[in-house]
Each structure stands twice: as structure tokens, then as C-alpha cells.
Design a protein around this nucleic acid. Structure first.
Length: 484
DNA sequence: TTTTGAGTTGTTCGA
DNA sequence: GTCGAACAACTCAAA
């Protein structure tokens, strides 16, 4: 009588894919029947509670993952509760002798994983973790003095000097699935998707979550947009960015896959755009490097002198920004794109974030929290690091006197106004010359476009020049306070 | 240890 | 309209 070996459990987290998945590959290579597990443990064990956009995407992505596993002969089960209890319990239920997962880098999550590894090992169950979510582990890049890097350019140089990332792992052709009895919860019972109001309607039009959608997005980007990337990536009116951020966030595709595919594309089509695009992957690596070395990245200023910055606590200002009702068209367009699609173009993120922090002088953490809740790519490293960068308190941050002019930015990067017209339709009939600052337009022009400021579209909630002066004064004061 | 060059993404002002 | 300088020093990383 042939005996079936004891099963292996693969714990999926930020790696919802079959291809290039080291934890899955290792479990399959062990020759054991494999069971896939996802644990909904949001907010447990000191982990930051995920946002609404994350929940929506997770539901879509888990459906795709379950179907993809099933098509190969595998099986995904769902459980909720603290992972520290659930994972060992499921392992015991199925009498697993091996548990694998791919690493994550938030301090609270790493603590959970370490605890589970200890518990499993104590039960004589092998536990193995793998690198899958970054090109390199964040602790492997150091300055020559052995210190964590704090400036992007030397970080990325040192990172690249280590050579190519590992080779990608193929998608398994078939999965020998665990066939014993084991219970799974029902995804719909987790309430991940909104109902009334269904704010995610626009999400489904904008995105194709899941591994297949991620692969298709990458292929389309490399085919059609990479060569124009360096010149076009700052243009929100064009579709030149990769839009891979949520797919990377959920691990539907890995940066290692992206790296190799980009190099392959560059061999065929030439190197245009390659270095620039990969450096954006580099920023993701750098952000994780920062997060690993500073676990409170989302809550504490990297530059401590900002601990004394006189932020303005004004709920009305924050609310106007969140709703896209600041009266500055490029800012409002971005905030509305975010609300409708769960995503915002990178250039507009900078403009909108700068506006909140500098024009409104609202604490960057309030902006970070809003993005965390509303972005489908809400990432514990990139989101926090980027907000600190904009606010000027981050590593290698923008200098404080660099205050984006929302009108100039709009004119420069949305020259025909297509982006503003799309997301702020009440201004669509304005001539392009008036579009980025409607308050300066002659009354006749506004009337001709059906715009009544303060009625159909807000008057600007601050005066740009005055807000700029006040921001500079606040920073100057900060500096004095630091010296004294 | 000290020195040196460099550092994602801009804006404003005046010639 | 265009162009260059000023904006403010400071910290990092490597030699």
C-alpha cells in the first residue's frame, strides 16, 4: 500500500502568485502534497489595520489565486484570526511536516512570523521562509562603513553593483494537492467589498487584479510604453506609467520578474526607458530598506527636528483636500482620481501631497493615512517613505523651500488639460489657458463655460503666494527653534 | 580622521 | 519670453 507523505502548508501573504514563488516551489519540491493557506489577520498582533482599497483588491486577488491553484490541482483555504494561532493550528490539523512562506518586512509582521517559526519548530514541523517580494533583502545593502544607506543614489548604485537579481522560478506545471479534510471560511463572509455605497465601482473598470492581469499589464507596458517612459512618466494626461504598483503590492508579480522582463524587452527594443523605469523599482527597494531599518517609518519623522513643526490642525482643510474640493484643479483632479480608481499618477501624488503639507500645513501623517486607506497600492514602505520625502522630513528629502506651484505643475504636465477635464468635469468647458487657475479667468470666460466659483466649483481655499510665504516662515522658525 | 563632492521630481525674481 | 542665480545649509558616503 503506497503511503502519501505528510503534507506541506504554504502560507500566502503579500505574494498572491504561482510563478516565481519560492515558498510554493520549495513546498512542491519537497514531494509532499501541498495545501495553500491565506489568513485574514488584519489588525492583529500590533499590525497596522489595512485600508478599504486594500480590502477590495485582496478579495479580487484571492479569487484569482484560488482559481489558479485549483486549475493546477491545488487548493486554497481561508481562515481568519491571529496568524500566530491560526497557522500552527492549521498545520497541526492537517499533520503538516513543512510550512513555507515568503518574507515580509514590517516589524510587527516579522515578529509574528518569528513566533510562528519558533512554535512550529517546537512541534517538530519544519518552517522555512524565502525572499520573494524584493530584488534583494533589505539588510544586504550597506555602505562601505557597514551602515544602512540614507541616500537613494548611492543605495541604488550599491544595490546594482551586487549584480543581477536571482533567476525567476517557473510557474509550477501541476500541483499535487492535499486531499484530506480541512475547513475553509467563505471569502464573502469577510466583508471585504463595499456595498452601500459601492465606492469601488470605478475600481473594477480601472483594474484587473490577479496574477494574469499583472502579467498582461507588464507585457503591455514593456511593449507599448517603456520606450516613452523616461519622457512621458510625468504626464498624467498620458498613459505611460506601468500601473504595476498594486500588482507589486499584492505580489501578483515580483520585482524579480519585472527586472528580467525589462532587460529582455530592452534587448529587443533598445534601452530607452529601461534605467529610468528600473530606478523606480529601485525606489521601492530603497523604501523597504528604510522601513526595515526604521520600523516606525509611517509615524515618526526621520529628521527629528520636524517633531516641533507647527502643523495646522484643521479638519475642514483636510476634508476639502480628501474630497478634491480645494479649488486647485490639478490637486482636485488627483484626489478624485484616487477616490474613483484607488490610484493616482505619481506626478500628481507629489503635487497633491505637497499641497496638503505645505499649502495647508497639515501633518503629513494625515495624508499618509488617507492614502493608506484609499490607494490600492497602499504600501507600508513606499507610502510612508514618499510622504516623508515630500514633507521634507524624510531620508534624502526634497529641500523645504521646494514648494510646488499647483498652477505651474498643471500647465507643465497636463498641457492640454485633458487630465483635469477628465476628473473635474465641471471645469471641462474652460479654455485651457484658464483651466489650471479658474479664479484668474475673466468673468465672461467663466460664465461661458458654465462655471460659477463658489457654486459649481470651489474658490481656492488658500492663496498660493500667501500659503507659500507661511510655509517658508514655518520652516524658518523650525530651524531657529532647532538652533536655540 | 578629514576632506570632498553630491544629493529624484522646483519656484521665483530680476536682468 | 528667456535665462541664470538664489533659495540654506546639511548630511551622507566614499576617498
Amino acid at each position: 500500500m503506497p503511503s502519501v507523505p505528510a503534507p506541506a502548508l504554504v502560507w500566502f501573504r503579500d505574494d498572491l502568485r504561482l510563478a516565481d514563488n519560492p515558498a510554493l516551489c520549495h513546498a512542491l519540491a519537497s514531494g509532499r502534497p501541498v495545501l495553500a493557506l491565506f489568513v485574514f489577520d488584519d489588525g492583529h498582533a500590533g499590525q497596522r489595520r489595512r485600508g478599504g482599497a486594500w480590502r477590495w483588491w485582496l478579495a479580487q486577488s484571492l479569487r484569482h489565486l484560488a482559481a489558479a491553484l485549483a486549475a493546477k490541482g491545488g487548493r486554497l483555504i481561508l481562515r481568519s484570526g491571529p496568524a500566530g494561532e491560526v497557522v500552527p493550528r492549521v498545520a497541526r490539523e492537517i499533520d503538516a511536516k513543512l510550512v513555507t512562506w515568503n518574507r515580509r518586512y514590517e516589524a510587527a509582521a516579522m515578529a509574528v512570523d518569528a513566533g510562528i517559526k519558533t512554535a512550529l519548530t517546537g512541534d517538530h514541523i519544519a518552517a522555512e521562509s524565502f525572499s520573494a517580494t524584493l530584488l534583494r533583502e533589505p539588510w544586504t545593502v550597506k555602505s562601505q562603513a557597514g551602515q544602512p544607506m540614507k541616500v537613494f543614489t548611492p543605495f541604488w548604485k550599491a544595490h546594482q553593483a551586487k549584480g543581477e537579481p536571482r533567476a525567476t522560478l517557473p510557474e509550477p506545471a501541476a500541483i499535487s494537492g492535499f486531499e484530506g479534510p480541512v475547513a475553509s471560511e467563505n471569502l464573502d463572509d469577510w466583508g471585504l467589498e463595499p456595498h452601500a455605497p459601492n465606492w469601488a465601482e470605478g475600481f473594477a473598470e480601472a483594474w484587473q487584479p490577479g496574477e494574469a492581469g499583472a502579467r498582461e499589464r507588464l507585457a503591455d507596458f514593456l511593449d507599448e510604453q517603456l520606450v516613452a517612459y523616461a519622457e512621458g512618466r510625468d504626464r498624467p494626461d498620458l498613459a505611460v506609467t506601468s500601473r504595476l504598483s498594486p500588482h507589486l503590492r499584492f505580489g501578483e508579480i515580483s520585482p524579480v520578474q519585472v527586472w528580467h522582463a525589462t532587460h529582455m524587452a530592452a534587448e529587443h527594443r533598445g534601452p530607452q526607458g529601461q534605467a529610468k523605469f528600473l530606478s523606480e523599482i529601485g525606489w521601492r527597494e530603497f523604501s523597504y530598506h528604510l522601513l526595515y531599518h526604521q520600523p516606525d517609518l509611517a509615524s515618526a519623522n526621520i529628521q527629528k527636528r520636524f517633531d516641533h513643526f507647527p502643523w495646522v490642525s484643521d479638519h475642514a482643510r483636510l476634508a476639502a483636500w480628501q474630497r478634491g474640493l480645494t479649488g486647485f484643479p490639478i490637486v482636485d483632479a488627483g484626489m478624485r482620481e484616487l477616490w474613483r480608481t484607488g490610484w493616482m499618477h505619481n506626478r500628481v501624488r507629489m503635487v497633491a501631497a505637497s499641497f496638503l503639507v505645505k499649502h495647508l500645513r497639515v501633518d503629513w501623517r494625515a495624508g499618509e493615512a488617507w492614502f493608506w486607506d484609499t490607494l490600492v497600492d497602499a504600501d507600508p514602505a513606499s507610502n510612508a517613505a514618499s510622504w516623508q520625502w515630500v514633507a521634507g522630513c524624510g531620508a534624502d528629502a526634497a529641500p523645504f523651500f521646494r514648494i510646488f506651484n499647483p498652477m505651474t505643475q498643471g500647465e507643465k504636465f497636463d498641457p492640454a488639460g485633458d487630465y483635469v477635464r477628465r476628473w473635474v468635469p465641471e471645469l471641462a468647458k474652460l479654455p485651457t489657458a484658464a483651466l489650471q487657475q479658474p479664479w484668474s479667468a475673466p468673468a465672461g470666460v467663466l460664465a461661458g463655460a458654465g462655471v460659477t466659483l463658489g457654486v459649481t466649483y470651489p474658490k481656492p481655499i488658500v492663496d498660493h503666494a500667501r500659503a507659500r510665504e507661511q510655509a517658508l516662515a514655518a520652516f524658518a522658525h523650525l530651524k531657529e527653534g532647532d538652533a536655540g
